[in-house]
């Protein structure tokens, strides 16, 4: 384990009675990562994050945040760490400004300098004009933004965000993603839990996918996408002749007719040879395009029950 490593979790288990909510989870977030933690609802994402933040005691396993275990050294382990799980929460009967001042009092540091920082952060999340309104009257989106301000008040090196765009309107989602991108560009390591695959594909460089409490993939997003088998789709005005040619073409495998097109597996050289063969056989072609599995297809393949297990799918 390495003191500069923002997150290192090994063999995390959380059992509630008969239910194994988290089952031997290993997670490593390196400095500078925007790490996507993906999984369907109830897969164990939030429980894992709560354990990382010291809110839930693991049944087994170890956690290090910058080399410190929050379940051993307590709040000291959260130095340089901020974020929220299951949406940010505040005291509804206090104003946003007072909520932030309260949280500043729960942090280390000089309260006077925090006051000006609070104003900057309210400006950043576009809540300065509503800073004296009670949070009880805030919309979901405003609370999410206030949650970001509360996290940044700690000047974090690691930001843990659990579903930060859930419940936001499209403009709010875009603004939140822009903010996360900007924070990451400023050097903040981000651990982002989400079930929105587009969001993870857009923001993250590394991902972990959790299914029924178990990690089924952890690694570079690009490596995951590269594991997807590449297929091709062919459309022709003479599908029967085209199919007969495909079945006899060297290097072409798994030919399937679906949705008025022929789908098959082949490498690039075989596809180049196929295009020449189709021309020589005077078979017209209206489309011959590669089809790469999206993150969504990979994700569904790894997390849906009827699909093969991830290890098998990725292997």
């Amino acid at each position: 384990m390495n003191d500069s490593q923002p997150v290192s979790a090994r063999g995390l288990v959380k059992v509630y009675g008969e239910l194994v909510a988290v089952d031997h989870v290993d997670l490593t977030v390196e400095k500078g990562d925007v790490f996507g933690y993906l999984g369907p609802n109830g897969a164990g994402k939030t429980t894992s994050l709560r354990m990382l933040l010291g809110l839930i005691r693991p049944t087994e396993g170890s956690i290090r945040l910058f080399g410190r275990d929050p379940h051993v050294v307590g709040a000291k382990a959260l130095e340089g760490v901020a974020g929220f799980v299951e949406g940010p929460t505040f005291y509804p009967y206090l104003t946003a400004r007072r909520n932030l001042r309260l949280l500043a009092a729960y942090d280390d540091g000089d309260l006077r300098s925090k006051r000006s920082r609070i104003e900057e952060l309210l400006e950043l999340v576009e809540l300065r004009d509503r800073g004296d309104d009670k949070v009880g009257g805030y919309s979901h989106g405003m609370r999410q933004r206030l949650g970001i301000a509360a996290a940044l008040l700690r000047d974090p090196k690691l930001l843990l965000l659990d579903e930060p765009t859930t419940g936001l309107d499209p403009a709010g989602m875009r603004d939140m993603r822009d903010l996360v991108r900007r924070l990451a560009s400023e050097g903040i390591t981000v651990l982002l839990s989400s079930h929105l695959l587009g969001e993870v594909e857009e923001l993250c460089n590394r991902v972990a996918i959790i299914r029924k409490g178990r990690i089924v993939y952890e690694g570079q997003l690009q490596d995951l996408l590269a594991t997807a088998s590449t297929g091709y789709r062919l459309r022709s005005p003479e599908p029967d002749r085209a199919r007969a040619l495909l079945l006899n073409q060297p290097g072409v495998r798994e030919v399937v007719a679906s949705d008025g097109a022929l789908r098959f597996q082949a490498d690039e050289d075989a596809v180049a040879a196929l295009s020449i063969a189709l021309g020589q056989a005077r078979i017209g072609v209206t489309a011959l395009v590669p089809e790469t599995a999206s993150l969504e297809e990979l994700f569904l393949g790894m997390t849906e029950d009827e699909q093969p297990r991830a290890e098998e799918a990725v292997a």
Binding site: L53, L55, A75, L78, E79, F84, F90, L103, D107, R154
Partner: peptide
């Protein structure tokens, strides 16, 4: 009830 315990326990103060 307000789920604010997680908010204050993830700052710099021990329980």
């Amino acid at each position: 009830h307000n789920d604010t315990l997680k908010t204050i326990l993830t700052r710099s103060r021990d329980r």
